[in-house]
Computed example of a mutant assay.
Amino acid sequence: MNSGSQTVWETVWQTAKGEFSDLGSAADLTQVLMRLGIALVLGGVIGFEREISRRDAGMRTHMMVAVGAALFVVVPLQAGFSQDNMSRVLQGLVSGIGFLGAGAVIKLSAQREVRGLTTAASLWLSAGVGMAAGLGREATAILSVVIALLILSSARLVKGRAHPRK
């Protein structure tokens, strides 16, 4: 090989290496893994509850929403977005998740009944949990899931007692 081609390959290698430099240290990698991992687990917990309740949006959906929300927060933080720009990211995320939640809501015209509101709300909450985890607010994310599980389970108990099955 001549020195000209070595320079080209070195340039290619350095450029490729630079493209993966966002997780340049073990600390950076650990932080991103922790934040996305916590979002994944907590979204899965909410989704598991919805799944055992036989609702359409289950573990995979809630996990994807939570990890996606965390990712939309982690990347701008890594890029050094200002607080104003991060605020815009969060606003867009909250608005965007509303469209996903709307897809979970079904209106049954004949019965004049609306279904899926709780599932839509749980998807919205999963996004909030993912945002909290992505921002490094893991304890807040965990507490939010505990509260959500209390709401979902206690409401089911009260509803079951108020409307016993025939």
Rank of each mutant, 00 (worst) to 15 (best):
E113I: 03
L123F: 02
P76N: 05
A127H: 01
W9V: 11
A121K: 07
L150K: 06
R35C: 02
V32C: 02
I151M: 14
T30E: 05
S87W: 07
R35D: 01
I46E: 00
G4C: 12
V74F: 02
A121W: 03
G80S: 12
R161T: 08
E113L: 09
E113Q: 11
L143Q: 07
G80C: 13
D84W: 03
G92W: 06
S154H: 05
A133N: 08
A141E: 04
A162R: 14
G96A: 08
L143F: 10
S87T: 14
L23D: 00
R35I: 07
D56E: 10
Q14P: 02
G58V: 13
A148L: 08
V32Y: 00
L29Q: 07
A104C: 12
K17F: 08
P76E: 02
S95N: 09
V75M: 13
T61H: 07
V8F: 13
A132V: 05
T118D: 04
K159C: 09
G44V: 06
Q78A: 08
L93P: 00
V73D: 01
G18Y: 08
T119G: 07
L40E: 00
F72R: 06
G116H: 04
A70W: 00
A39C: 09
Q91G: 03
R115S: 07
L149C: 12
V114H: 04
A162Y: 09
N85A: 14
E10K: 14
V158F: 15
A148P: 02
S3F: 13
A26L: 13
W9M: 15
V158Q: 08
Q6L: 15
A132I: 04
A127P: 03
G103M: 14
G130I: 10
L157F: 09
L77H: 04
S109V: 15
G128D: 03
I46K: 01
S95Y: 04
Q31D: 05
L152C: 09
G37L: 13
M1W: 10
M64H: 06
M131A: 12
G37M: 12
A26W: 09
H163L: 15
A26V: 11
I46C: 08
G136W: 03
E138I: 14
S144K: 04
A26T: 06
S25K: 13
W13M: 11
A66E: 00
A141M: 11
R60P: 06
F20K: 10
L77I: 13
Q14C: 07
A133D: 08
D56I: 11
V114Q: 06
L157Y: 05
S154E: 06
G128M: 08
V65W: 01
G24N: 15
S153F: 12
A16N: 10
S5L: 15
G130P: 07
S95Q: 09
E113V: 05
T119R: 06
V8P: 01
S82H: 05
S53W: 00
R55Y: 01
D84M: 10
V32H: 00
R137E: 10
A110Q: 14
I106F: 07
V67G: 04
G92M: 10
D28W: 00
V145K: 02
G116S: 05
G96Y: 02
S21A: 15
